[in-house]
Each structure stands twice: as structure tokens, then as C-alpha cells.
Design a binder for these strands. Structure first.
Length: 362
DNA sequence: GTCCGGAGGG
DNA sequence: CCCTCCGGAC
């Protein structure tokens, strides 16, 4: 759409409205520095990685926990990877945690604990892509980067009334987003993306945005033509998810131990603990279940981004001496199994199998 | 159950 | 440019 069809667009007028709103309404978040001061690059990086695909409320506790366990990037880099993975459990998208660990190692040892300041060098680090590089360079270092996340995409699509559907409209939206940042001073460079995120999260929300109190409403094309903002950004219909099925085994010993395994780098939920089973992600081999009597415990269902999964949970017992452990497999005491940080899929398995086990110890 | 939110990497 | 990765709110 041609923005001039609706009104005369003015970059700095828009920026002033947004920044004035931010000065009055900014959210207080653990990773944000006080007004007029820059937060630590370590905090910005850690929070931005956690915030990828994850909501602010979910991230808060994890951020507090991580920074209290590891006050500096050196502390994080020196921690055993398993400990970091355990602390990440429940946050999802575990590749982020694996990249976080790799990145911490590089910054701590190769770069003396200093993050690069420009987008180009930031993007060379594991887990830092276009968005995160732009966010760190502007928020931590005051560079005027064009930061585009889902909030900014949504705001752009409404303010400029972009009628092409996502993801086709990505490039167009990114180009239009430049208007939001052009000419911002270094002093305000970090505030602008954060202001847009705050407005996106609290005012220009995906559904039923609060246009009546929006600082951008008189410059918003969708608002000005009384279109329904809920319809923006337009999106291509998504493909139906395929369904997969498999088995998962709860194998216990007479000594009240449970068999768990650490998943490999290549598998889904890599580096996390889980229970053995058939390969439901198309990677690795099926668990060769010992020839014993298996009781059906029930089904667990879980939905991932690109498929839904149903696992049949089977429970069996055998003497400890008969169990041959592969590497990456461990026998863990029944009293400790609840303390393992499992990803959600295996938490469901645990929740199903453990009470039955306690009721009928065999 | 359904929808929502998005970046990294090959 | 396409594929791959979860959890929570409702």
C-alpha cells in the first residue's frame, strides 16, 4: 500500500510519539537498566535469547535464576553444560540453550568476556541471528539498528496497512520498518525497539488492540480507514500438522530405580533427559525393549511446531543386573526422578507413570 | 483442542 | 528459501 494515500508520513513525528509513550509507560523488567543508562551486554544477550519465541512472564523467573547462578558470562561459560540445560528445562526450544552455552564459551575465552558491538560480528556467534544481533547492538551499545521482531512486524503491518500476507510480506515489512528507526540518536537507539515491543505487547496486541489509547493511532493507516486491526498482519493459512506415534518405556529395577537417557545432539530435545522409546523424531534408533512383561500405562500426547505426537507409555520391571546400559543411559533413584528437569513431553510421561508406580509398586 | 508467538540454520 | 525447533494462554 502507498502510505501517502492515507496521510502524510513523518518519521520523527512517529518516533516522538512512541518514545514519549515509552517514557511514561515502559515496563519494568529485570533485564532492563534504569532510565538513561545502558544495561550490561550479558544481560541483554541472555534475555534476548530467552525471549526468542517465549513470553515475558515465562522468561522472568528463568532470567533471575540464571543471573543469580551465573552473575557474569564467565560464570556461565564455566558451568557444566548439563547444569545449564537443567536450568533451561521447561523453557522450550532447547537449541537456544545449546547455542547459549557455545556462545558463552566463545565470548568468555576468545573475546575476553566482551560481546562484539556491531551486528555483523554479533551474527557470527551461535544463537545470534539478524534479530538478536540488531537488538543487542542497539540496546546494549546504542547503535541505531533496524530491530524487527513479531511485535514490530505487527505494528508495521497496521501502521502502513500492508495487505500482502506473511511470510510473503517479510521483505516489504522489513523495508518499511526502517522508517521507525531512521535518524534516532545513539542516546535513544536502544529505547526505540524496546518501546515498540512494549507497545506491541500491551497496546497493539494481536487481538483486540487498544487503539483508543494508542500513541500511534493518528498515524496508523488501518486505524484511519477504520479497518479491523485484528486482520493485520494478514497471514497465509498454515498447513495441517502431520501426526506421529511411538512408544516410550518406563523401566524400573527392584531397587526402585528408573532408566533415563540423555538425548543426543541430533535428536529433538537434544541434550535434555528423557525416557527411552521408539524414535519418533526420525533420528537415531528405536530402544530395544527387553523381553519382559510390559504393562500399558496410557497415552501421552504432545504438539510440536511441525507435528503432533502420541506416545504409548509402557511400564516394566527387571532386576538391576539384567539391565545393560548404553552410554547416555542412567539409572536414577525413584526419589530423584522428579528433580530431573525434563522437557514437557517427558514431564507428561513422568506425571502419568509415577503415580501408577507408587500405587502398584509391584 | 486451538491458537498464538518467531528466530536460527542449512 | 525452506526446514526445524516448544510451551502456554484461552
Amino acid at each position: 500500500m502507498e502510505k501517502s494515500h492515507v496521510f502524510e508520513w513523518n518519521n520523527s513525528a512517529f518516533q516522538q510519539k512512541v518514545l514519549a509513550w515509552y517514557d511514561q509507560n515502559r515496563r519494568i523488567l529485570p533485564w532492563r537498566a534504569k532510565k538513561n543508562s545502558k544495561p550490561s551486554p550479558y544481560h541483554v544477550w541472555l534475555s534476548e535469547v530467552m525471549l526468542q519465541q517465549t513470553t515475558v512472564p515465562a522468561v522472568k523467573k528463568y532470567f533471575e535464576r540464571f543471573t543469580s547462578l551465573w552473575p557474569t558470562i564467565h560464570d556461565l561459560a564455566n558451568s557444566p553444560p548439563d547444569t545449564v540445560m537443567q536450568e533451561w528445562a521447561g523453557l522450550g526450544y532447547y537449541a537456544r540453550a545449546r547455542n547459549l552455552i557455545k556462545c558463552a564459551g566463545i565470548v568468555s575465552t576468545d573475546l575476553n568476556g566482551k560481546f562484539p558491538e556491531n551486528e555483523k560480528d554479533l551474527k557470527l556467534l551461535p544463537g545470534i541471528g539478524p534479530y538478536t544481533a540488531a537488538a543487542i547492538s542497539s540496546i546494549a551499545f546504542g547503535n541505531n539498528s533496524v530491530v524487527v521482531d513479531g511485535n514490530v512486524e505487527r505494528i508495521v503491518s497496521r501502521v502502513f496497512k500492508v495487505d500482502d500476507p506473511l511470510p510473503l510480506a517479510k521483505k516489504q515489512i522489513h523495508a518499511l520498518a526502517k522508517h521507525f528507526y531512521e535518524g534516532i540518536t545513539s542516546k535513544r537507539a536502544g529505547d526505540m525497539p524496546q518501546a515498540l515491543m512494549d507497545i506491541g505487547a500491551t497496546v497493539c496486541t494481536p487481538k483486540s488492540p487498544k487503539c483508543a489509547i494508542c500513541p500511534m493511532s493518528d498515524m496508523c493507516a488501518v486505524r484511519q480507514c477504520s479497518d479491523n486491526p485484528d486482520l493485520y498482519p494478514r497471514k497465509l493459512p498454515k498447513a495441517k500438522k502431520p501426526h506421529r506415534e511411538g512408544k516410550v518405556y518406563w523401566l524400573e529395577t527392584e531397587a526402585k530405580q528408573i532408566l533415563i537417557e540423555k538425548r543426543s545432539d541430533e535428536q529433538m530435545l537434544g541434550w535434555m533427559f528423557g525416557f527411552p522409546g521408539t524414535s519418533w523424531d526420525g533420528v537415531g534408533n528405536d530402544f530395544v525393549a527387553p523381553d519382559i512383561n510390559w504393562d500399558m500405562v496410557g497415552d501421552v500426547t504432545h504438539v510440536f511446531t511441525h507435528f503432533s505426537l502420541k506416545l504409548e507409555v509402557l511400564r516394566g520391571r527387571m532386576p538391576i543386573g539384567k539391565i545393560k546400559l548404553n552410554k547416555n543411559q542412567y539409572l536414577i533413584d525413584i526419589t530423584e526422578v522428579e528433580n530431573i528437569g525434563f522437557p514437557s513431553l517427558f514431564k507428561k510421561v513422568l506425571k502419568l507413570a509415577l503415580p501408577i508406580r507408587n500405587k502398584h509398586p509391584g
